[in-house]
Design a protein around this nucleic acid. Structure first.
Length: 500
DNA sequence: GGACGGTGAAACTTCAGGTTGCCTC
DNA sequence: GAAGTTTCACCGTCC
C-alpha cells in the first residue's frame, strides 16, 4: 500500500481531501450519512473554492427549476457556483439531473451525497471519499454493510481517463482506523438474503400467483416457493409451509381468494388487487375504511387512509415538538378518520400519528402551501414531496378501484377530486379550471383571482382578458377547447368565431 | 448605561434510499 | 451515537 500525504489546510479532513483533489485537477464524490450532512459538506467545500462563469450559469439553471426557489434551491445554487454540489433524495429530479450532468462534464468538481449516488450510473470521479460508515438504525448508530461500502468505493476511477481511482475512508481515530481496515478493507461482503422473506412481499406474490392462475392449490403454491432462493436459504421447509398457510388463510379471510374443494381461486377483488400491485393488507385496510365511510368523507380522512399503508413508508417523523400538535389535530378531526385511531399505549399509535403528519403535509400541499413552507413546517424537501405525491396518486387510484368493487358509488367522485387536487396541488375551487389542457396550478390560480372560476366563466370571458392573464398562445388554446376558433390578426387585434 | 455584535460552549433535535399502476371522458 | 443547529451567557465596543 502506498502512502500519500494530504496537506492540512483546514480543520476539516474532508475539505482538505477535496482541496487536494482539486489541485490534482480531479473530481470526487463524498459520501455522508444524512441529507443535512450532504448539504453542509458541500457548503464547507464551496467556501474554499472560487466561482466560475460556467458554474454561475449552472446555478441559475438550478434556481429556475421550481417556480419559486426554496431555501434548499438557493443553498444548492450557492454551492454550485463554486463547483461543489450536494445530492440526495430531497432534491428535485431536474436538479439532480443537472448536478449529474454537469459533474460528468467536469464543471461541478465535487458531489457530497447520501447513498443515492452509490448505486447510480458511472460518473468520472477520481476519488470516492467515504466520510461516514455508520448510519442511524434501529439500535442507534450501526455500521453499514460491507456490500454497501464496496458500492461506494466502486464509484472511484474512470476507465476513460484514469488507470485507477482512489477510495478513501475517513477514520476519526487510530483505533477506528484499524477497525475500518478490518471490517471493510479485509472483510468479506455479507451474504445476499432473499427479500422474498418479507411478509408484505410474500403476500403480494401469493396473491398474484393465484390470480394469474400459475397455482391453483396449496400444494402447488408450496412447491413453487420451495424452489425459490428464499427457501434455499431458509432450509426449514416446515416453517415455510406454516408461513404459506398463514398467508393463504389471511387472503381467504380478506376475501381476495377462495378455496373450494382444495382449489384456490382469486376473487374479482383479489384479481384487481393483484393487478394494482398493492400489498393485500393495504387493500384490506382500504376496504375496511371504505365500508366505514359515511355518505361524505373528508379530504384529510382519505389522505390519512392512504398514508397509513405500508406503501407510503417511510412516513414523516414525529418529533417531540410535533407530538402534542398532532394529538390535538387527531382530536379535532376525530370523526373523519377511516383508519381507526389505536389506543395511545399501543405500538401502532406512533405509526398512526406519523401517517397523520404525512397526510397533513399532503393536505397542506393541496391547500397550495409553497414548497419552501413545507420544508420549514415538515422538514420535507421538494424531491421527497414529489416521491410521496407519486405514491399517493397510485394509492388513490387503487382506492378508487376498490370503491368501485365495493359499490361505493357516492365516494368515487370524492376520491377522484382528492386525486386531482393532490396531483396539481390545488384547492377544491380550482378543479373546474383544470379541465383545460395547458392550465395547471399556477395559471388556474391566476384565472381564479381574476374572477374566472369555471368553464362558464371562461366561455364568457373576453379573449383580451384571457390573453392578459395566461398569454396569447394559451388563451387561443383554451378558447379552441371550447369549440371557439380564434383568428389572430397581424395588427394585434384578435377575434374569434364559434364553430359548433 | 444601554444597544449591539461577536464568540463559544451547552443544550437540543434529528437522522438513507426508491419500485410497482392506469388510460379517464 | 453524533453531526448540525439553536440557544444563551459572556464579553467587548460604540454611542
Amino acid at each position: 500500500m502506498k502512502t500519500q500525504n494530504i496537506q492540512q489546510k483546514t480543520s476539516n479532513d474532508v475539505v482538505d481531501l477535496a482541496l487536494d483533489t482539486f489541485e490534482k485537477n480531479k473530481q470526487a464524490f463524498i459520501f455522508v450519512n444524512t441529507k443535512r450532512s450532504a448539504e453542509k459538506c458541500a457548503e464547507d467545500i464551496a467556501k474554499k473554492l472560487h466561482s466560475t462563469p460556467a458554474c454561475e450559469f449552472i446555478a441559475q439553471r438550478i434556481l429556475k427549476v421550481l417556480g419559486s426557489p426554496t431555501k434548499q434551491c438557493k443553498r444548492l445554487a450557492d454551492c454550485v457556483k463554486k463547483g461543489s454540489a450536494f445530492h440526495h433524495s430531497g432534491l428535485h429530479n431536474k436538479q439532480r439531473e443537472i448536478v449529474e450532468e454537469e459533474f460528468r462534464l467536469g464543471n461541478i468538481r465535487f458531489i457530497s451525497s447520501t447513498p443515492t449516488l452509490a448505486a447510480g450510473i458511472s460518473m468520472p470521479a477520481f476519488r470516492a471519499i467515504i466520510r461516514d460508515v455508520q448510519r442511524y438504525g434501529k439500535r442507534g448508530m450501526e455500521y453499514i454493510p460491507v456490500l454497501e461500502f464496496l458500492q461506494m468505493a466502486g464509484r472511484a476511477g474512470r476507465p476513460e481517463f484514469d488507470s485507477f481511482g482512489e477510495a478513501i475512508v475517513v477514520a476519526k481515530s487510530d483505533d477506528e482506523k484499524e477497525e475500518l481496515e478490518e471490517k471493510y478493507l479485509l472483510g468479506e461482503p455479507e451474504d445476499i438474503y432473499s427479500k422474498l422473506a418479507v411478509e408484505p412481499v410474500l403476500r403480494t406474490y401469493v396473491l398474484s400467483l393465484i390470480s394469474a392462475g400459475f397455482v391453483n392449490d396449496f400444494e402447488k403454491l408450496n412447491k413453487f416457493f420451495s424452489e425459490t432462493f428464499w427457501a434455499h436459504q431458509f432450509k426449514d421447509v416446515g416453517e415455510l409451509i406454516r408461513v404459506m398457510k398463514r398467508m393463504k388463510d389471511l387472503l381467504i379471510e380478506w376475501g381476495f381468494i377462495q378455496e373450494t374443494e382444495q382449489k384456490l381461486k382469486a376473487t374479482y377483488a383479489g384479481m384487481r388487487v393483484a393487478e394494482l400491485y398493492i400489498d393485500p393488507l393495504t387493500a384490506h385496510e382500504f376496504v375496511k375504511g371504505l365500508l366505514r365511510a359515511e355518505e361524505k368523507i373528508s379530504h384529510l380522512g382519505i389522505l390519512h387512509l392512504i398514508c397509513n399503508s405500508l406503501e407510503m413508508r417511510p412516513l414523516l417523523n414525529v418529533t417531540t415538538k410535533d407530538f402534542e400538535e398532532l394529538q390535538e389535530k387527531a382530536l379535532q378531526h376525530d370523526k373523519e378518520f377511516l383508519s381507526l385511531e389505536p389506543s395511545e399505549f399501543e405500538p401502532e399509535y406512533e405509526t398512526w400519528l406519523k401517517a397523520l403528519k404525512t397526510a397533513s403535509m399532503l393536505n397542506d400541499w393541496c391547500e397550495e402551501i409553497s414548497e419552501d413552507e413545507l420544508l420549514k413546517k415538515y422538514n420535507v424537501r421538494p424531491g421527497e414531496t414529489r416521491a410521496k405525491l407519486n405514491l399517493a396518486d397510485w394509492l388513490l387510484y387503487s382506492l378508487h378501484e376498490l370503491a368501485k368493487i365495493e359499490q361505493k358509488q357516492n365516494l368515487l367522485s370524492q376520491i377522484n377530486r382528492a386525486r386531482l387536487r393532490l396531483k396539481y396541488g390545488i384547492k377544491e375551487e380550482l378543479i373546474p379550471l383544470l379541465k383545460f389542457r395547458g392550465i395547471g396550478r399556477v395559471k388556474a390560480r391566476k384565472l381564479f383571482s381574476k374572477g374566472i372560476k369555471d368553464v362558464a366563466d371562461v366561455k364568457k370571458a373576453e379573449f383580451e382578458l384571457l390573453k392578459n392573464v395566461v398569454g396569447e398562445k394559451l388563451a387561443t388554446k383554451v378558447k379552441s377547447q371550447l369549440g371557439e376558433k380564434v383568428v389572430i390578426q397581424k395588427k394585434g387585434f384578435s377575434s374569434f368565431e364559434v364553430t359548433e
